[in-house]
Nucleic acid binder design. Structure first.
Length: 169
DNA sequence: TATTTGATTCTT
DNA sequence: AGAATCAAATAT
């Protein structure tokens, strides 16, 4: 997914963000994956077919956007952590969702339907080696699973020049 | 019904 | 290091 575009359409227009950083959450054994504690109303979507969004509220303040991956029956998803919009880095899942106006109304959306939110391949070739692998963030509670190098980030020249948007209310 | 927690971000 | 802030999970 790195280098592809996340496109968001709302009432006011279309915003496209190049995907810079993602994290993978893979399977029922992955203690960091929300599905590791079994099926609940909240995590049910993770067990379904791929291509469906999973948006949840975290810490009472921020939304996180994921997309379900893998076949139906095997729970897995990818968290979108950072995108680049018009050359500006939006770094962090909470900031990203605020910037693109993504909230729980977009939970369980079919992202292959081309409505409200979808992915596009705009042909940007990502060189091998341009993608770094790192441990996932904020999952220390997951024991050994916290050490898995399942965070992937595109090393961009603009990687450090992004402005920090003030997201306070 | 009550308490704890969390795939974050911001201020101090 | 701590606050903001709440739905979902867990404990009671």
């Amino acid at each position: 997914m790195i280098g592809k575009y996340l496109v968001r359409q709302n009432g006011t227009g279309i915003t496209a963000g190049k995907i810079i950083e993602v994290e993978a959450y893979i399977g029922p054994q992955d203690k960091a994956c929300h599905a590791s504690k079994g099926r609940t109303p909240r995590t049910e979507v993770l067990f379904g077919p791929p291509g469906i969004s999973y948006v949840y509220l975290i810490y009472g303040m921020y939304h996180c956007l994921n997309v379900v991956t893998e076949r139906a029956g095997f729970p897995a998803a990818v968290l979108i952590r950072a995108v680049e919009v018009n050359g500006e880095l939006i770094d962090g899942p909470g900031r990203l969702c605020r910037a693109l106006e993504i909230d729980r109304s977009l939970d369980r959306l079919d992202m292959t339907s081309g409505e409200s939110m979808w992915f596009e391949d705009r042909g940007a070739a990502i060189p091998r080696g341009a993608i770094g692998m790192f441990p996932r963030i904020g999952v220390d509670y997951a024991g050994e699973w916290a050490k898995k190098p399942w965070r992937f980030r595109l090393q961009t020249s603009s990687g450090t020049k992004g402005r920090r948007a003030d997201l306070r209310r």
